[in-house]
Design a protein around this nucleic acid. Structure first.
Lengths: 357, 357
DNA sequence: CTGAAAGCGCTAACAC
DNA sequence: GTGTTAGCGCTTTCAG
């Protein structure tokens, strides 16, 4: 299965080349102050022995590991895994390794052991890629939790003094709602995600505000809370139609729940978009092939990860130079992707189109 | 944003407690040979200073890091991310940390730098969670690549001398096909995944073999190759119907491509399952809410990850004891999930059902 | 029960 | 250009 040979150390290379370990170190790190002849010889021995410096030993002495801690939750969902995808590629490009920790569930609040494990391995910074839910952020302002390294939070309500990268969910909700209103729908219901999620509340607020601005009535019977799953979406749309019989459009908190609205409509013979307009959120790749194709709000998960890493690198550099590390909030803008499920005024926008902000 | 205070070292704790570093070490590692009184005092100082041992320094001296390397590709897809989900939870349970590397693309063959980076950080083992595609496994038998640590491969053709954990894709294909045949479909087309993928070829072979066993004819016009995406699935189903007009069922290589078959049928007014039976692969959660609900082959991605970690832990222990590390192949069995898209004989199986192997 | 010495694999700082 | 010394933070070994 594998050859359990021990890897050579810098000492062995030095001995084989008849130089000091220091010289080997210089060659490995491509320092200029080595004679060409020596460099050649050492280089040769290195390849022969298959020598490879220990990043561990290096981290120890340099007090810098070129490793980032990533804390995530819900990897089995599209959003988190695509964001991680962005983090991995950006980190790789920057020459950083990633130490990954996944929380057992979204609400996990017992984060001290996680942070300790990361710090024990001398990570240079931590990307907290867990969405804000319930009180799972209650500790960020707790001064007893000392980080001593930069931390960047993803997907949460911006707060004074901490760095946040997030999609502007409120704006996304507004894009969805204003599109439906513009298409002439007047009785727009909402299937919200779980309202202990910050993202859900933002989308929910947008729904409320847009109805109000348009001068349409709204009551608490006009929305139902789901849990992001298609299954919960089906329950929700059933309940919603009972409570709100003259509903003519639905803004769903995500595409999975929107899928159930389409499913329900197909089953009941409700015509989409004529009788019922539907808009989702996230714009998952399958949405284009739902029946009918689903209008949605595009969220650049990958980009969130990339931006987070870039911010982290800046923070690490500033930290090194002992500069004051300025906390920054970055809000990314979503965009509207119009497809048939909401396109009642066909003459206006006859085909799929992507509108970038 | 954070307090850049330096973390205390074992020396500082020792000094504060008036003992040697060795005694602190003993307390930290819960060794029995410390007097209760000393233990208490040291314990107290540790908490006071917020001392935390450096896993790095420990790894260096113990020649063991309690860290696993995970190499993955295509994190933005459901399968890989759910498998990673299984790996993270199993590793966490076992007290192992994870060093994550994502390949830039599935076909990446330049894996030496990846392995070197992992070994430089002294991982105790490597889980190679990249599916076998084209020649991206050509190096596994290359003896010049020395691992010196256990490696477990996911999703590939079992090979003598290496450890593999994989779903039995051939069996999955057979479950799908025999179900369609049993439902009375006789002209069964196939939308394959990319045929340089081992998984696709296994499913493809099952399609061929089952048709042959049933005594049905088959030609090269009866299948089309897609690339897993719904978009490619739509192209594929168009082409397939042109080439194979009397087709009455489709076995799609995954659920995304199956979705496009449903989409196509809805568009053309083809009735499912009466005129056309459809079976997918993977059983993604949304499939239940497609229109009509999609029959599929359940693949336990999470479980693959869990099993891989368990095997890894065994291999690491054996390696430590210098036991002979036996290479093992573990093939997991998929199961058939029947829904409306393939249920022509309604009286036989009137509802969704999951058949566990 | 506790401490001193040595060293894991490497690099910073200084000598020559 | 190159070598020597010291030490990153910890644990192992061996004394006492």
């Amino acid at each position: 299965m594998f050859t359990p040979s021990k890897r050579p150390t810098i000492k062995e290379v030095a001995a084989a080349a008849g130089v000091s370990t220091q010289t080997v170190s210089r060659v490995v790190n491509a320092r200029p102050d080595v004679s060409d002849e020596t460099r050649q010889r050492v280089q040769h021995i290195i390849e022969e022995l298959g020598y490879q410096p220990s990043a561990l030993a290096r981290s120890l002495i340099q007090q810098r590991s070129y490793t980032l801690g990533v804390v995530i939750a819900g990897l089995k969902f599209v959003g988190p895994s695509r964001t991680l995808n962005g983090i991995t590629s950006a980190a790789e490009d920057a020459g950083y390794s990633l130490l990954l920790k996944e929380l057992p569930h979204f609400h996990a609040n017992d984060i001290v052991p996680i942070i300790d494990a990361l710090k024990a391995r001398h990570v240079d910074g931590i990307i907290w890629a867990v969405p804000e839910i319930g009180d799972n952020r209650s500790w960020v302002m707790d001064w007893s939790i000392e980080f001593s390294i930069p931390v960047i939070y993803l997907t949460m309500e911006p707060k004074e003094g901490i760095s946040v990268v997030s999609l502007n969910n409120y704006l996304g909700g507004r894009l969805a709602m204003n599109h439906l209103i513009q298409q002439g729908y007047k009785n727009i219901g909402h299937i919200a995600g779980p309202l202990d999620w910050w993202e859900s509340r933002q989308r929910f607020s947008a729904w409320k505000d847009c109805l109000k601005e348009a001068g349409y009535e709204r009551s608490d019977k006009n929305y139902v809370e789901g849990n992001w799953s298609s299954s919960s979406g089906l329950t929700a749309i059933n309940k919603l139609f009972q409570q709100y019989p003259n509903m003519d459009a639905v803004f769903a908190g995500n595409d999975q729940m929107a899928l159930s609205v389409l499913h329900y409509a197909n089953q009941k013979g409700i015509r989409i978009p004529e009788d019922l307009g539907v808009v989702g959120f996230d714009n998952i790749p399958e949405g284009e092939f739902f029946w009918p194709p689903l209008t949605s709000i595009q969220q650049e998960f990958h980009h969130i990860g990339t931006v987070a890493v870039q911010e982290m690198l800046k923070a690490i550099e500033a930290n090194r130079k002992n500069d004051l590390v300025e906390a920054r909030t970055i809000m990314l803008s979503p965009s509207l992707v119009v497809r048939e499920s909401s396109l009642r005024l066909k003459e206006v926008q006859p085909r799929s189109s992507v509108k970038k902000p």
